[in-house]
Amino acid sequence: MKLLVMCEGPNEKTIMDLLLANNCLAFSEDDLLGSVIFHARQIKKSSLVRIELNAYMGDVKILRI
């Protein structure tokens, strides 16, 4: 299973990126869909999220920040 982390805005993403880079989260880059945190409000409006969802066949848990 992978985590899809979707941030509401660029500020939230920057903070999450910092926390991830400094191992301050309960998950690592390897646990993330696409190995990154996304700035995306809706799946259907984010092509990058859709591309990653198309490529990964397993279950996905969504975390909204």
């Binding site: 696409g34 990058l48 591309i51």
Partner: peptide
């Protein structure tokens, strides 16, 4: 394969 084409496009969009 479509997934590979999508992957190439995603690499250019991902600033990391």
């Amino acid at each position: 394969h479509k997934t590979l084409v999508e992957n190439i496009i995603s690499l250019y969009k991902d600033k990391s």
